[in-house]
Simulated assay, not measured.
Amino acid sequence: MPATTIHFVRHGKVYNPNHVLYERLPGYHLSQRGARMAAATARFLALNPATQSVSALYTSPLERAQETAGIIRDQINLGRRERGERPLDLIEDGRLIEAGNEFRGKRIGRGDGALWRDGNWRLLTNLMRPSWGESYQSIAGRVSDFVREQLEHRPGEQIIVVSHESPIWSFRHMLETGRPEHNMLLRRTALASVTSVTFESGSGSVLGITYADPAARLA
């Protein structure tokens, strides 16, 4: 059976001077540091013999993910053009979007709009559920649907996916433990990191999971 590898990349650092919990809000872009993080990860992927042969590049519809994916695309396409290969395009997929969160638009800190005002703290009743937004079951389920589709239509290929911390970790936790519920404080999904999952294309069995943090020195 051929093996399919999906490389899940978390977006780079976001420009957010007011410390807003932006979740799915529009208008939140990579900071200058975030762009450098994305560039470091792009170089890492472009130099990796496996991802040099990537066949598709998917992204969440949110700006920070699309900007990260665009930097990766441009770097990988340099090599593809030199080899006479067709450049990659970005493919947007809503299943890769950030988790829904009832705290969207709130600020971390004090003053008007702060997270801890107006009784918002009452939503923090269960770190494993979570109790303040989209369930981990829902998050992992939509990523699973995306992955099953890739295994069916792109067997044996290398695929890059740019998404967000919660979808990437919820899916990985489900693969490793059988359940997506987890303590969000214990995630291992750094900004611009790469979580690579290799599947047997026919059965969908997991053959291996690796993790890399190419932008660690920029964090």
Rank of each mutant, 00 (worst) to 15 (best):
Asn18Tyr: 09
Leu57Gln: 05
Asn18His: 10
Thr177Val: 02
Leu124Ala: 07
Gln66Gly: 04
Leu175Gln: 13
Gly12Lys: 04
Gln150Leu: 15
Gln32Thr: 14
Pro87Gly: 03
Gly178Leu: 01
Arg154Trp: 13
Ile139Ser: 09
Gln66Pro: 02
Ala219Arg: 15
Asp118Thr: 03
Ile76Gly: 01
Ser163Ile: 02
Leu207Thr: 08
Ala35Met: 15
Phe146Val: 11
Ser203Asp: 06
Glu200Asn: 14
Ile108Thr: 08
Ala3Met: 13
Ser55Asp: 09
Pro167Ala: 07
Asn77Lys: 10
Met37Tyr: 01
Ala140Arg: 05
Thr189Cys: 14
Asp89Lys: 09
Glu165Cys: 08
His173Phe: 09
Gly34Trp: 10
Ala50Asn: 05
Leu47Cys: 06
His29Cys: 06
Gly12Phe: 11
Trp116Cys: 08
Gly119Ala: 08
Glu63Arg: 10
Ile168Tyr: 02
Leu175Lys: 10
Phe103Thr: 00
Gly113Cys: 02
Asn183Leu: 04
Glu149Lys: 14
Phe199Trp: 11
Ser205Pro: 00
Asn48Ser: 13
Val9Leu: 09
Ala219Pro: 00
Pro87Val: 07
Asp112Ser: 14
Ile71Trp: 03
Ile72Ala: 10
Arg86Trp: 04
Ser201Arg: 09
Leu21Asp: 03
Ser144Arg: 14
Arg217Leu: 08
Leu25Asp: 11
Tyr136Leu: 04
Lys106Ser: 10
Arg83Trp: 07
Asn101Ser: 14
Ile108Cys: 04
Leu45Pro: 13
Glu67Leu: 08
Ala3Thr: 15
Leu21Pro: 08
Leu25Asn: 04
Leu57Cys: 02
Asn101Met: 02
Leu47Ser: 14
Ala46Glu: 06
Gly94Val: 08
Pro130Ile: 04
Leu62Trp: 00
Arg86Leu: 12
Thr177Tyr: 00
Gly204Phe: 13
